[in-house]
Design a protein around this nucleic acid. Structure first.
Lengths: 231, 231
DNA sequence: GTTCGAAATCTGGTATACCACGAACCAGCA
DNA sequence: TGCTGGTTCGTGGTATACCAGATTTCGAAC
């Protein structure tokens, strides 16, 4: 007989955190008619827990930049401004380009090969693939680079940034016509990694991400979203 | 008569946070005989507050990597492993080298000149200056680069990393003989920025920080601190 | 009809009490 | 003496109650 230890470390707080995070990310926070205000007591009741653990979760979500707690005023889901988004992409580029450098030195051939598996998926079937699916694989590709860098901190920090990209996607960040370019970029990145060319790999990763940066700025600005409140 | 509005947004929690953070950073967490365990009730009593706001602060400090809360076990100040420290320096290098790129494009001549002010201070009087003081100015120099990049997020993320460098300093990270090299590096960085040479500035910032990385690895390893528990 | 202000009410902030898990201790047995 | 199992105590986790600032509402005065 064999028993696996039951995981008692998963506390109520963790469940609340996951639920809340999920719920927030699922919100269409840029729609005109959403209510960004959250009712602490109401949430606690919905979740069937008291305010105390909920509040600790809120503190955490606030630090991650998903919420804003205004004392005596209310708790609000944070709308990212264009400027916020752009800064996050810059930081992302910084982290991932460094990861590419490290990967050149430390990643195994097998690990680099695993990138191909992800990237190839769409070089062949890109025609019928829908954007959402590509977007997921795209993120996965970038996460993989961070992973094979061997630097967990870089990966973790980038992960926190990726979270906020969910909302951006809704605003038509990834149009269909960008997919071929993106796929091509990925291939070039892989080649640089395979060649163990530190500077080239860094540059290609950075440029790739910064292209997204410029694109987002273009699209959002064109859509007239320049004000700070989102729209 | 003019009255500034009293800042009601500074809540009790903020005070607790500052106190706690200060106290933790002041601890010599690598000494053999320190007690890394914190008593929640005891702290609350010392601070003269109840456990509730304290706990929210603890959640925050945990997320910042200063504490570790083990359910039903206790709250512990986190000792950074050598590997943790090295990863933080890598991430720092990533963020700051990107900041240098941005600064080349966007910083004003005046802003770059302000770097000289900080850097020069020790090129002339480095003889009698004590390490702690240099270390502070060193951090200030790097913060300034992040600041003039114009990207607040980069600066904020780096700031979170710098926090953890306090403890590192205690472990003789900044020996006297490294100061001249450091000062020289700073000057070269400034020159690259003045020349608006994006790639060169990035490389010099990165290399400078990675030299620290290698140095720390050297020193800690030589001291026999390879185990995960600190020592 | 408009404006001003007081009171009711809603919100997050804080304090307190209770609960469940874990660790340490101790008694009883082999 | 050494091991086992149960009890106790200490810890963090959770629930609840109360507090104070902020907002809203509504009525009285103009």
């Amino acid at each position: 007989m064999k028993l696996n230890p039951i995981d008692t470390s998963v506390t109520l707080k963790d469940h609340i955190y996951n639920r809340m995070r999920e719920a927030i990310l699922d919100m269409d926070i840029y729609s005109d008619d959403v209510d960004l205000r959250l009712d602490e007591r109401g949430l606690a009741e919905q979740l069937g827990v008291s305010r105390t653990p909920l509040r600790e979760v809120l503190v955490r979500l606030e630090q991650e930049g998903l919420l804003e707690v205004r004392p005596r005023r209310g708790i609000f889901v944070q709308r990212k401004t264009l400027s916020d988004i752009l800064e996050m992409i810059v930081a992302w580029a910084a982290l991932e380009s460094m990861a590419a450098r490290l990967a050149c030195d430390t990643a195994t051939d097998r690990q680099i090969a695993s990138l191909r598996t992800i990237a190839m998926k769409y070089s062949v079937s890109k025609s019928g693939a829908d954007i959402a699916e590509y977007s997921d694989d795209n993120i996965r590709f970038h996460q993989k680079i961070l992973e094979i860098s061997g630097c967990e901190l870089l990966a973790r920090m980038a992960e926190n940034l990726f979270v906020h990209m969910h909302a951006v996607r809704r605003r038509s960040m990834a149009e269909e016509d960008r997919v071929p370019q993106s796929v091509a970029d990925h291939m070039e990145i892989i080649e640089a990694l395979e060649a163990r060319d530190v500077d080239l790999a860094e540059a290609r990763v950075r440029d790739h991400t910064m292209r997204l940066h410029d694109h987002v700025r273009e699209v959002w600005t064109r859509a007239g979203i320049t004000k700070n409140k989102g729209e």
